[in-house]
């Protein structure tokens, strides 16, 4: 199944966000609801199961100067096997203008057994733009091993590289669940916050959540691993609320090794 969806937001002269373009096709249907403060919330409504291997889905998001958009999904998406020797692809391209705000806060991606899936996000944030970008990957449904899944995240800020990350899990990814990558955790995710009004926060770590000031900020990335989706969401929600992590930095992993 091939589908493209497109969302274009502009601020009107009263500073209210209007969606000048909002179109999608099954299984990428877009529905808008008003949000507080003149912004807009758009839900991506899955119009079919999947993505299934062979699907090719694209979503383009353009947030013009001053516009405020929050994109969510109504449920987790489950990448499933489909046509043999094909992959399912989800490409999200987003452009965030100066003074524009994009919150991309979808539900989890679940890599089901036997899936072959690639998610690619390409985000360009202009200087002065605000971005909250959350990604969560669950490795397999309950009690199963995941198929192949790749998550690529490319973010530019003011036309300079800000974040480049690719995470690959599944039978073709050596060591993915081992002690160098996920350490047996079934859930992993990150929250990126780019905000000129909020300087990058100092590095900190608590348990399996870490806060990372990026090199060409103002931007901070929270990265974590957890045994399940619920625990992971708790970590990332807590990260967005901030405060607690800084004071307890290193408390759980802070151990001194003595070697004879």
């Amino acid at each position: 199944m091939r589908a493209t969806a497109r969302l274009v937001a502009r601020a009107d002269r009263h500073g209210r966000t209007t969606l000048t373009e909002l179109r999608g096709e099954s299984p990428l249907l877009l529905r808008q609801v008003p949000a507080a403060g003149g912004g807009r919330t758009v839900y991506v409504v899955g119009g079919a199961a999947g993505p299934l291997a062979g699907d090719d889905l694209r979503l383009d998001i353009e947030v013009g100067p001053g516009a405020v958009v929050r994109v969510q999904t109504v449920a987790a998406s489950v990448a499933l096997p489909g046509r043999p020797r094909t992959v399912s692809r989800m490409l999200v391209r987003a452009r965030v203008a100066a003074d524009a705000v994009l919150h991309w806060l979808p539900e989890q991606l679940v890599a089901a057994a036997g899936c072959a899936h690639v998610t690619e996000s390409q985000v360009d944030v202009a200087e002065g733009g605000v971005l909250h970008w959350r990604d969560e990957l669950i490795c397999g449904r309950h009690g199963e091993q995941p198929g192949h899944a790749e998550i690529h995240t490319w973010v530019d800020l003011a036309a300079r590289p800000l974040l480049r990350q690719s995470l690959t899990v599944g039978p073709d990814a050596p060591g993915w669940s081992g002690p160098a990558v996920l350490g047996g955790a079934r859930a992993t995710g990150s929250l990126l916050i780019v905000d000129p009004a909020r300087p990058a926060e100092p590095a900190a770590v608590r348990g399996t959540l870490t806060r990372l000031p990026l090199a060409s900020g103002p931007a901070t990335l929270w990265t974590g691993t957890a045994p399940d989706a619920h625990t992971l969401r708790g970590l990332l929600d807590g990260a967005n609320g901030l405060s607690s992590i800084a004071v307890t930095a290193g408390a759980e992993e802070h151990r001194v090794v003595r070697v004879g």
Partner: peptide
């Protein structure tokens, strides 16, 4: 750009020792 969440977590934990 292959990354590993635990590499970041380990590095930041180690830096606090």
């Amino acid at each position: 750009a292959a990354n590993a969440p635990l590499a970041d977590i380990h590095a930041e934990a180690h830096a606090t020792w």
